[in-house]
Amino acid sequence: MTDSYLYPIVALLPLTACILVFQVNPYHALVIRGILGAVAALVYAVLGAADVALTEALVGTMLAITLYAVAVRSSLVMRLGVLESASATSLDVSQSAQPQLEQWLDNLRTLLIKHHLRLELVNYPDRQRLHQALKDQDVHAICTPLEAESLENQAIAADSPIYCTTIRIPRLYDILQSELSSSHLTPSARLAQFEEVSL
């Protein structure tokens, strides 16, 4: 146990642990966790604990990373409900509506990527089911074109439909509100917070 190569090998463990702690992106942290697991298995094997090294490689490196990757992937997501007609059919509507919706979704994606979130679109056939899905907590937010009578200025609504994004989760609303107010992005979209009607 007085081999001279033991000390640098053991010193690798705190080094990789420090790198792991300073990661910001969760996926990058997972990959570094794999590196930490490999180095830990090396240290355990060199120190003579072969069974511990095997367990670290099997559980710590393979199982834990895979399960955590699935968990991070399914939790760091914003599910946005959209109307099917807005993204697919009805020619005269899609001619004017689709570029704006696409632009708004692109803006939303770039805003969310800053916070390591992913945007997942869920299509619904009509407006009623969209609102029902928001109430049932199937989606985190919905994006609907505002109806003409609810707009203050109907002349604007005729050629450019304004999209209203209703967000159910307060923290998500705060993040997007602060990002939108600081970056002066598209005025064609507005945010609204969904308030639960207590019965």
């Binding site: 794999g34 095997l54 490689a57 490196t61 393979m62 990373i65 895979t66 990757a69």
Partner: peptide, 14 residues
């Protein structure tokens, strides 16, 4: 040997 094969398996899954 087992760690050599398992490390590559974890890499592929990830």
């Amino acid at each position: 040997v087992i760690i050599l094969s398992v490390g590559n398996a974890a890499l592929m899954l990830l």
